[in-house]
Design a protein around this nucleic acid. Structure first.
Length: 775
DNA sequence: CTAGGGTTAG
């Protein structure tokens, strides 16, 4: 018996012990035979107790050890480290140090440093480092790697680099630590640089190095390097596992190479929730909402249940296409199955806001207890999107009373809220405060907001001066903001200048070109108009056709331009033709009609049908009752039109098991959502809300002439800078700044006269310069 | 030393 428990095999016996009962028996035997008092025995016993999760027993073994040696100490410290009791690790380490014996060894320092890293406790970390080097461990490769890791986790890459350079011998772990350290510090270039040095020293990378390297490539955004790393891995037969392969999928997906990501994903030998999520989030983040949702379905068919990370991507997809119904279902699902962490909460708040339900967003914001800076930013942005500048500001002030300090995104949201609400003075004020008090240097985004704010309010010269004061070369968005303001306020000279700047920068967006074209058209600069139209045509043939989606009663319907496949296509075209006819009877002439010379019936039908938003809106109007709000949401892309149709209008419930939760939530404020891949913006939101409520509040026949005017105006494909004009149309006072306000305005008694409305609307339309038939 | 998630414009 005694020989069976002699030291060489004791470790193995204890290790094979999986049950508490067996362990207690061996413990007793060790006490009786006295083998517990052999040098390493109590350490092994402590480890064994720790392995079955009995830390109390581990502690009692430790207490009974008369003179615990360092391996006994280490066993207990490691036990705490394993179960995440990091404070205990530090407590024991300090106790050990204060006693002055036994002498800590390499393992002691490694484990303690790891705890410091996990606690981001730089002070204790430095304490440990000093002690370790006093005891002569400053060249120990294990200790050094832990030091590197500790510095890296605490964001001290400078210190890590210094230690790393002084290491006489570097192993694969220390190289890896430096690479992942730089990646997590947001410095992929340095990470790649370290890898190059490692190669130069003849060290062959393994899978774990590749994980860091692939993350660096993903963050760096250069797929040339990424692909060469992938190729290297294949050529050198580097062993990959599910983690490495997931990194590959993620790298391709994050950078928009979704076909490649999908191929790599398909070839994976084993897939888990993380691998699926990498692909799903790739689709969602790149605007392929239906593909993201499709993969979510596939993942469930595969037998995996989505976790909170996968759901965040699904929520993101819902906000992109305005799929409120599914978004709400997922919200219900989360409430039942998960705790709301702050990321999940923020995603759902944002979803409600983007899907038009500001009240739900705020209600959830109030309920979610774990808020962070991004949650606050999201809430401020939500008010901004809905044109509630004052509320955005009061939310900002509310946030100022908390521990969170506003960052660049906070100010971007705040400034855009002012811009959407016409709060020019506030905009100027806070833009200055941002620079002077908060010491935040304005970025391109902030300039876009400010230029938009000023130009929208007619201060185009001031906006231009602001652009000229920019430290860096302004991006397209800045010029587009100026252009849009000039267009609205008929500032033709500056407008054409801005248009020229936009053309120089070659944006990849048809909607912007239509705005450019309109500005030249108003200025009667026909050569330019022809040139821009030509460029648009070239783009149009290269690009995948856009989609518009409309959600009716929780089901999404997809339309492509000139798409005749919809069962109700005839009815839709009838409505569009009728509207077009009524519109012209009112004296409406699109100003850029010269582009389409012969308006025979067939051409007209094409013009009406080649705008996917028109088809979607007409369908929405045909299938919903008057007074239904139609909301426009963000753009949508899809890798496959058949997939889109399958998901969106196949009559198939995307998530059957969620049905009950959805009904439990039952919030029936909105019915119809429109989303579109083309660039027309908030005009549609504004006008369609107006349209739908006009029908209700005037108790009209299905469609009146005014509605026709409004409707066609809604379909002009003008970028979303028309709010001011719409506002003018309702002759609303300055304190009604937003689309939302405009929409509310329609309920006011003075607007109940159809004649009054008609005059105002015609005025607005004559002032506007529409483009026509932009797909 | 190892993978996936939320905010910022028109």
């Amino acid at each position: 018996m005694r020989s069976a428990l002699s030291r060489p095999s004791l470790k193995h016996v204890l290790r094979s012990c999986s049950g508490a009962q067996a362990l207690v028996q061996i413990h007793a035997l060790m006490l009786v035979t006295g083998s517990l008092y052999y040098p390493h025995s109590s350490g092994h016993l402590i480890s064994a107790y720790a392995r079955i999760g009995d830390v109390a027993a581990a502690h009692s073994v430790f207490r009974t050890a008369s003179n615990p040696n360092i391996s006994t100490w280490n066993a207990l410290i490691i036990a705490h480290s394993r179960r995440g009791s990091l404070d205990q690790v530090l407590r024991l380490y300090r106790l050990l140090v204060s006693q002055g014996r036994p002498r800590p060894d390499s393992s002691t320092f490694t484990v303690t440093l790891k705890a410091c890293a996990q606690l981001f406790d730089l002070r204790s970390g430095r304490e440990v480092i000093t002690h370790a080097s006093d005891l002569g461990y400053s060249h120990d490769v294990f200790v050094c790697s832990s030091v590197l890791n500790m510095y890296a986790k605490c964001g001290k890459m400078d210190d890590a680099m210094r230690v790393f350079d002084e290491m006489p011998k570097k192993d694969i772990v220390s190289w890896t630590t430096m690479i992942t350290g730089f990646v997590n510090a947001g410095n992929p270039v340095e990470a790649i640089e370290v890898y190059r040095k490692m190669q130069a020293e003849g060290v062959e990378g393994d899978g774990i190095v590749m994980v860091g390297l692939l993350q660096a490539c993903a963050a760096f955004g250069d797929m040339g390097i990424g692909q060469s790393v992938h190729g290297y891995m294949l050529r050198h037969h580097i062993e990959t596992d599910v983690v490495v392969e997931t990194c590959l999928v993620d790298m391709y997906a994050k950078n928009g190479f979704l076909e490649t990501a999908h191929i790599v994903f398909e070839k994976m030998t084993s897939k888990n929730v993380v691998s699926w999520s990498a692909l799903i989030s790739g689709y969602a983040q790149n605007g392929f909402a239906s593909d993201a949702l499709w993969m979510l379905i596939k993942m469930q068919e595969f037998g995996l249940c989505p976790d909170s990370v996968a759901l965040v991507s699904a929520i993101l997809a819902c906000s992109h296409i305005g799929f409120l119904k599914l978004g709400k279902s997922i919200h219900g699902f989360i409430m039942k199955r998960f705790d709301f962490d702050h990321i999940l909460g923020t995603a759902v708040i944002d979803m409600y806001s983007k899907c038009g339900s500001l009240l739900s967003a705020r209600a959830l914001f109030n309920r979610v207890c774990s808020r962070d800076l991004i949650s606050w930013n999201t809430m401020i942005a939500s008010y901004g999107i809905h044109g509630h500048g004052k509320e955005a500001l009061s939310t900002f002030l509310e946030m100022s009373k908390t521990e969170f300090k506003p960052d660049h995104a906070t100010f971007a949201s705040l400034l855009s809220a002012f811009s959407h609400s016409g709060l020019v003075e506030e905009g100027r004020h806070w833009f200055n405060l941002m620079r002077q008090e908060y010491r935040i240097g304005p970025s391109d985004k902030h300039y876009v907001c400010m230029v938009d704010l000023l130009a929208r309010a007619g201060h185009v010269e001031e906006a231009h001066e602001l652009i000229q004061s920019m430290p860096d070369e302004p991006g397209v968005a800045v010029w587009v903001a100026l252009l849009s303001g000039c267009h609205n306020h008929k500032k033709l000279e500056l407008g054409q200048y801005a248009a020229g700047k936009v053309l120089e920068l070659c944006p990849d967006d048809l909607g912007i070109y239509s705005l450019v074209s309109n500005v030249f058209a108003v200025a009667k600069n026909w050569d330019k108009v022809v040139e821009v139209r030509r460029r648009m045509k070239n783009m149009g043939t290269r690009k995948v056709p856009g989609y518009s989606l409309v959600e009716v009663e929780g089901k999404l319907h997809a339309f492509r331009m000139e798409d005749r496949s919809h069962p109700q296509y005839e009815k839709i075209m009838d409505l569009l033709k009728r509207l077009d006819f009524e519109m012209r009877k009112l004296g409406y002439k699109p100003k850029t009609e010269f582009v389409f010379h012969d308006l025979d019936e067939e051409v007209k039908e094409r013009m009406l049908g080649n705008h996917s938003e028109k088809l979607a809106i007409a369908f929405g109007l045909l299938t919903t009752s008057p007074g239904t709000r139609i909301l426009e949401t963000a753009r949508h892309r899809s890798t496959s039109s058949s997939r889109l149709q399958q998901i969106l209008s196949g009559g198939r419930s995307i998530w059957p098991e969620l049905k009950l939760e959805h009904e439990a939530l039952n919030e029936n404020a909105e019915k119809v959502h429109l989303s579109s891949s083309s660039a027309s913006g908030t005009t549609i939101l504004t006008v369609l809300q107006a349209l739908s409520f006009l029908v209700a509040s005037l108790q009209e026949k299905k469609i009146s002439q005014i509605l026709v005017v409004l409707f066609l105006k809604a379909l002009q494909g003008i970028p979303g800078s028309q709010r001011l004009q719409i506002r003018k149309a309702y002759d609303s006072p300055q304190h009604l700044p937003s689309a939302h306000a405009c929409f509310n305005r329609l309920d006011l008694p003075e607007c109940t006269s159809e004649e009054q409305l008609r005059r105002r609307l015609l005025l607005a339309i004559n002032e506007a310069n529409e483009g026509f038939g932009i797909g």
